[in-house]
Design a protein around this nucleic acid. Structure first.
Length: 296
DNA sequence: CAGACTGTTTCGCA
DNA sequence: CTGCGAAACAGTCT
């Protein structure tokens, strides 16, 4: 799925696109991807879109909300009435001049008129604009929640860009854990929002090997992690996020972070700092990239 | 052709 | 509670 910077980009796009709109209908083509009663949000005005970790929260005036997780391959595409008409009449590619809002995991397979084979949920607004939910692997979901229930945020770890994420918090969460630093960064109940790409990037900046056990981290190293998390994530948000394949920004252009990645996806290439060959190993079933010279 | 791998998380089990 | 491996699924890569 998109990680925090990509989800943040999508949320900003949705804030531009769907605030004030009302949903006329929701077509659920794959039942298991939609949890709850869709009628709760029909005809209520959308007042806010927020990000929680890697998930999206769409708040409605009637106190219900739509909670969305894109997981690996989920995608939200917003299409205006006229744009929808144009796209439906195109046989092949969506040209970059047609503005789409959203994104998540564009791919050649997705690059065709909507709805298509991987469209599983279609949200139609009263003004005839449409939000399509596409998901190749069907891991993602949408859930109806009552926003008056308070325990929502507590079920997640502290958001990676939260002010509350400091060294004391992280130390307390890591104490007595026998896991690697990489696994700790990926654990959404400790910090929410970091995925495989940015965990490698953050650890490179903090100069810590990904397989170092958290019990061996010095206080200064925990500080480094805490300091570099927002630096790396904000840099990626500024670059429009990234993707192994071809993540799209809201105007249809690509996110640029991967071009600047220090280690992710750069196995056998030279470290940008010291020219040592970047290594890749598996940690907890996830591939991890690092520089053996820069990281200790 | 088979098997491994992919941006994730959750579940069951030891 | 902790940590590990598998599962949810579909496509690409080796």
């Amino acid at each position: 799925m998109p990680e925090l910077p990509e989800v943040e980009t999508i949320v900003r796009g949705l804030n531009q696109a769907i605030i004030g709109r009302k949903i006329k209908s929701i077509d659920i083509l794959v039942d298991k991807l939609f949890i709850g009663n869709k009628n709760s949000v029909i005809n209520s005005k959308i007042i806010e879109v927020k990000r929680l970790g890697k998930t999206i929260l769409i708040y409605f005036e009637n106190n219900y909300l739509l909670h969305i997780h894109l997981k690996m391959t989920g995608q939200l595409i917003f299409v205006n009435k006229n744009q929808q008409f144009k796209i439906k009449n195109l046989k092949l590619k969506i040209p970059p001049t047609i503005k789409i809002v959203g994104g998540g995991h564009p791919d050649k397979k997705y690059d065709q008129p909507l709805p298509h084979k991987y469209t599983h949920i279609i949200i139609k607004f009263t003004d005839e604009s449409t939000l399509f939910y596409n998901d190749l692997r069907k891991f993602g979901w949408m859930k109806i929640l009552d926003s008056r229930i308070k325990n929502l945020e507590s079920r997640f770890g502290i958001d990676a860009l939260s002010e509350k994420l400091n060294s004391n918090y992280l130390s307390s969460k890591l104490s007595k854990r026998n896991i690697t630093t990489k696994q700790a960064l990926l654990d959404q109940s400790i910090i929410s929002g970091i995925g495989n790409i940015y965990s490698d990037e953050i650890l490179f900046c903090a100069r810590i090997l990904p397989d170092k056990k958290v019990g061996k981290l010095k206080p200064s190293e925990i500080n480094n992690i805490v300091n570099f998390i927002p630096i790396v994530l904000n840099k990626s948000i500024d670059l429009g996020g990234t993707s192994r394949s071809d993540y799209l920004k809201i105007d249809g252009s690509r996110g640029n972070y991967l071009k600047y990645a220090y280690v992710y996806g750069r196995e056998n290439e030279k470290c940008r700092v010291c020219n040592t060959k970047i290594k890749r190993i598996k940690i907890g079933q996830r591939s991890s990239h690092f520089c053996t010279n820069c990281q200790k």
